[in-house]
Design a protein around this nucleic acid. Structure first.
Length: 484
RNA sequence: GGCGGUAUCGUCUAGAGGCCUAGGACACAGCCCUCUCAAGGCUGGAACACGGGUUCGAAUCCCGUUACCGCUACCA
């Protein structure tokens, strides 16, 4: 039986959960869920200067919002310093690494000298030629040193899950014998990552392809440490519409931004998943369960993708329309309450009204925010009238507008029951009586009832508002027209 | 500069040598539906980076060029 796959998402807590990071996390999660494996979280907080608790929380919140649950308590890289050092020590003891006493200033000098000659800098290993006695003497004396990995001859290659075979001649890996432990005893990124991935028994390292050039160094470290290699999968980057790496200039880049814009996590996951993965066929709109079902590394793309907010909105609209009403209701209720339009309790007290409102608006809105905006006329009596519509529909011919509203009111007021089946013939007859088409009657009426010209169907609006409010709004509109 | 990666409509992508007159989706335009707005349906414009090979046949394989991206720290 194949071992259970173990994957991890390893963000640095130096900001918010970026959409690129979220997508990497999502693919790791999908793979783990698809194969019955484990998905772990590791907070790479070794850069003490830039790491903050606030961003750690922001990342957790983003993950939770997306529903990307992890299977073991998060690992904090900073807590593993002793093991990182012990592993570096093993490297030293095994002869895979050596102490280097060159100072940063000396190195800078060597670097610029190489540059002046038009050559790529590679560390010349001068400290590797120190005698054991000399090294001992300088350590004894307290000279600061770094630990460098001794780069072997040959080439380092792996079969990447998304790219196939990638090979680096060892002479081209970095600047030669790379540093593994700083002079203050703390590990360099690649050392910490490998030490942790081994300790966490990670079997598949899936990350952004900006890590491709780190991979040969890490493979060499695994080998020197005598640990089995995990598989590697390098995912393409996400770019902005200008083809550059996604950044603040492109607008919202944090998943939290989209959350506050009224995007559903279901849509965000779906959209992100399709950026660099295709499930086969023409499948686009999927639930998370369907994505898990369909997920396969065969569908992973090698090409960087451009983040298109318009398609995200479309996707969100699709989910808005398709998701179960019971799942949608609490989220809209929360947004309605947040906008100060009604309390969740108000809505709960009128379940039929709220459900009808949702059914009618969710096909018309692309985001939760937009849905709430469209819901305003049904939740609040003070209407914001569209000035252009007022001018066109009412004030161009006030007498006619007033007559149409009067006829509508009369037709509606005479109804024995407040339902669409009764309204339709009554209103159409009223229009006919006025010698106009139904549309000519509906638009001024729509404006009177809602303040705007784009709404659900006339009868649905009337049902939503109820008899008393509908009639009162018509009266108010006529008063307004008369006063103009 | 060196090394690595990538290259199909504006964007996300399908395409594993003949099913390709290159398919779908977003966006855009038009039409239909229609009380408005959506949703939905139909139609349209829109791409194989370039140059060489290999092959009876190449978007697909190989080589080169170009472009873009990434890495190139005692950052992660």
């Amino acid at each position: 039986m194949a071992p259970v796959p173990r994957l991890r998402f390893a963000p640095s807590p130096t900001g918010y959960l970026h959409v690129g990071g979220a997508r990497t996390a999502l693919f790791n999660w999908l793979y783990a869920r698809k194969h019955g494996g484990q998905f772990l979280l590791r907070v790479e907080d070794t850069d003490r200067a830039r790491s903050t608790d606030a961003s750690t929380r922001a990342i957790f919140e983003g993950m939770e919002w997306l529903g990307l649950d992890w299977d073991e308590p998060p690992v904090y890289q900073g807590a593993n310093l002793p093991r990182h050092q012990a592993d570096a020590r093993r490297l030293l003891d095994a002869g895979a690494a050596y102490r280097c006493f060159c100072t940063a200033a000396e190195l800078d000098e060597q670097r610029s000298a190489a540059e002046a000659r038009g050559e790529a800098f590679r560390y010349d290993r001068r400290c590797d030629r120190l005698t054991a006695e000399e090294v001992a003497r300088r350590v004894e004396r307290g000279d600061p040193y770094v630990v460098r990995f001794r780069m072997p001859e040959g080439e380092t290659a792996w079969v990447d899950m998304v790219h196939g075979r990638i090979a680096f001649p060892n002479k081209d890996i970095g600047e030669g014998d790379f540093i593994v432990l700083r002079s203050d005893g703390t590990p360099i990124y690649n050392m910490a990552v490998v030490s942790d991935d081994i300790a966490m028994a990670i079997t598949l390292v899936m990350r952004g392809d900006d890590h491709i050039s780190n991979t040969p160094k890490q493979i060499l470290l695994y080998q020197a440490l005598g640990s089995p290699l995990p598989q590697f999968a390098h995912l393409p980057m996400i770019h902005g519409t200008d083809g550059k790496k996604l950044s603040k200039r492109h607008g919202a880049t944090a998943v939290g931004d989209y959350r506050h814009l009224g995007i559903l996590p279901e849509a965000m996951n779906n959209f992100l998943a399709l950026l660099g993965w295709n499930p086969g066929g023409d499948r686009e709109v999927m639930t998370r369960a369907e994505m898990v079902e369909l997920f396969s590394e065969d569908g992973l793309s090698r090409k960087a993708a451009v983040f298109d907010p318009q398609k995200l909105e479309w996707m969100n609209g699709q989910h808005l329309m398709a998701m179960p009403l019971d799942a949608l209701a609490p989220r809209v209720a929360e947004a309605v309450e947040g906008a100060g339009l009604a309390t969740a309790a108000d809505l709960a007290a009128r379940p039929d009204f709220f459900r009808l409102l949702l059914e009618l608006l969710r096909v018309r809105a692309r985001t939760i925010d937009e849905l709430v905006r469209q819901a305003v006329p049904y939740l609040r009596d003070a209407l914001d009238f569209d000035a252009d519509a007022v001018a066109k529909l009412w004030l161009k011919d006030p007498a006619q507008a007033d007559a149409l509203l009067g006829a509508s009111r009369e037709a509606l007021a005479g109804l024995s029951s407040w339902d669409a089946a009764a309204m339709e013939p009554a209103l159409r007859a009223a229009a006919e009586g006025m010698g106009v088409g139904a549309g000519k009657l509906f638009q001024p009426l729509r404006l009177a009832l809602t303040g705007v010209t784009a709404t659900p169907g006339m009868f649905d609006v009337l049902m939503l508002l109820g008899r008393d409010r509908s009639l009162a709004r018509i009266d108010a509109a006529r008063a307004r027209i008369g006063a103009a």
